[in-house]
Each structure stands twice: as structure tokens, then as C-alpha cells.
Simulated assay, not measured.
Amino acid sequence: MALYRDKKDGKDLRIYENADELRGHLAEYIAEISEASIKERGVFTVALSGGSLINLMGKLCEAPYNKTVDWVKWHIFWADERVVAKSHADSNYKLAKDGLLSKVPIVHSHVHSINDTVTAEQAAEDYEFLIRQLVKTRVISVSEINDCPKFDLVLLGMGPDGHVASLFPNHPVLNEKSQWVTFITDSPKSPPERITFTFPVIYSASNVAIVVTGGSKAEAAHLAIDEVGPNCQEVPARMVGPMEGSLVWFMDIAAASKLEGVKFSE
């Protein structure tokens, strides 16, 4: 059970005593959405980010989930990716493969990674084309509101600056509306070249979870979740809000330590 759970301005906050407790509940949450999506549509489409997220998903590789989850119905995507070789240490694909995908029986052709042999611009175009094809074949649902792909679940981390996916503060791509996938060549975090889902795609998801641990993220979490003054910078994580779906924040105490009005049960 979460130490604290409440809805705050439409955000479902689930705060846990430590990262290990969070891992268990995150695995349960993902497994439940997977089961519901497969029952409804026959597939489960999930988009991942990098950073510490894959490690926090690690309980899915353990009992009971490694046996009870219908892994062959999963389709894996990336909400953002570094434009490096798949074998590179900075690759989100490599991180996910080593930490999760190689440990469960996911169908190889259902793992939809980027083309790592082209420019960032071409990689973004290729990835959007791939997604459009899978929308046409109804592997991915489509939003009736904006005709964007409607992923069953988008899993995001958050940086100390409040960025999600590769949508960084004050960057022009925050305002991209026409493309589903775009690219940047000037990421403030190395490596500089990346592809990323745009906000309209994130908004269209059936479920979005932002998973945050550690005290270095506490100030950004405060700016993303609490009511702040007009002179405060609006961090990208604050802009996340599904149009029809649900938004859940999974946090540990350290990440939640600066939230206003949050009192932990004894």
C-alpha cells in the first residue's frame, strides 16, 4: 500500500516509502493495464523511456509476472531514444533489452526500435512512419479526438530539470503539434541527438505514468504538481495530462519531499 495516495488537480499521486516498494506496485499497475488491454483489443502497446525507469520496472521479470503476463501480446515502443547504435551504452533500447526484454518472452518482431543507421531527422521520420503503419493495421489504437496514436500505456521518467521523454524546458519541440515523432540535435543532456514523441501523442495515451525517485527530482516534482506562482518556470512534466486517459505519478518519499499538502501516514 502507498504511504500516500490522493488525487491532486487531476493527478493520481502514489507515494511509497522507498524505491523497492515502488517497484512492486509499478509492476502490478503495468500488469493490470496489460491484462485489460489484451482482453479488450488482443494486444498491449507500451512506450518506454530511458534513465532509471527500466530498473524500476524490474519486478516484471520476477514471479508472478514473468509467468502470468501475456508477453507475446506486448508491443514495445520508445517515447524517446538517443540516436546512437543499439549496442551503445547510451541507447535506451540496450538499457531495456538488458534490463527487461531479454528476461521475458516478448516476440522479437514486437520490439519496435528506431533505425540507428540514419540521421536524427530521418530516424524520427522513419519511426513515425512505422507507428502510422501499425495504426492502420490497428495494432495501435487511434484517438477519436485528434487522430493521434493512442498507446495503451506511456511510461515516463522525469529529469531534475522537469523534462519528460526528450522534451526539455524552453525547447521549441514543446510546441510541436503536427508531427507524432520529432527530433532534436541539441539536447542539454548527452548525447545531443534524439528522437521523441511529441506532446499530442503523450496526451492521447489511454494511460500515462510518470515514475520519479530521489531527492534530486523533488524541486521539479513540486513545480510539476503543485500550484506555483506565475513567475515560476513551467516544467515539461507539468504539461503532461491525457485528454481521455489517466495520469499516475509513482514517487518515493525523497522525490515527493517538497510537495505541498502531502502528509505521510505513519
Rank of each mutant, 00 (worst) to 15 (best):
R41T: 14
K67H: 13
V83A: 03
K73Y: 07
S87R: 09
I38K: 08
S109D: 14
A96N: 05
G58A: 11
G50A: 05
I33H: 06
L56N: 08
T45R: 00
L100H: 10
D80W: 06
T68G: 13
D70F: 01
E62D: 15
Y93M: 09
I38W: 04
L53E: 00
V72S: 15
L56T: 03
A79H: 07
I38F: 04
L100T: 08
K94S: 08
S52P: 07
K94E: 11
N92P: 09
F44C: 09
K67R: 11
R41G: 10
P64R: 03
V83K: 10
K67N: 14
D98N: 09
D90I: 02
R41I: 09
V84K: 01
G51S: 05
N92V: 02
H75Q: 12
V83G: 08
D98C: 01
K97S: 15
V104W: 07
L53V: 05
W78F: 12
K103R: 10
S37E: 04
G58F: 04
S102K: 00
W78R: 07
L48P: 04
W74V: 00
V46C: 10
L56D: 06
S102H: 02
V46F: 05
G51L: 00
L48S: 08
K86S: 09
A96T: 03
G99R: 05
T68I: 08
S91L: 03
A31N: 12
W71G: 10
F44W: 03
Y93H: 11
E40H: 10
V107H: 15
A63Q: 11
L95A: 14
V72Q: 15
W78S: 04
R82L: 04
S37L: 01
D70N: 15
S49E: 01
K103A: 06
V83Q: 11
H75E: 00
D80I: 01
A31Q: 11
K97C: 14
W74P: 08
V83S: 09
A31S: 15
H108R: 14
V107W: 13
A85S: 14
E62R: 07
T68D: 15
Y93S: 07
T45D: 13
E32I: 10
V104T: 01
W74A: 05
V43M: 12
L60G: 08
G42A: 02
G51M: 03
P64T: 00
I38L: 06
V107E: 15
V107M: 15
A63M: 04
S109W: 07
N66S: 14
H108G: 12
H75P: 03
A36D: 00
V104M: 11
G50S: 06
G99M: 06
E40W: 03
L60A: 09
G42S: 01
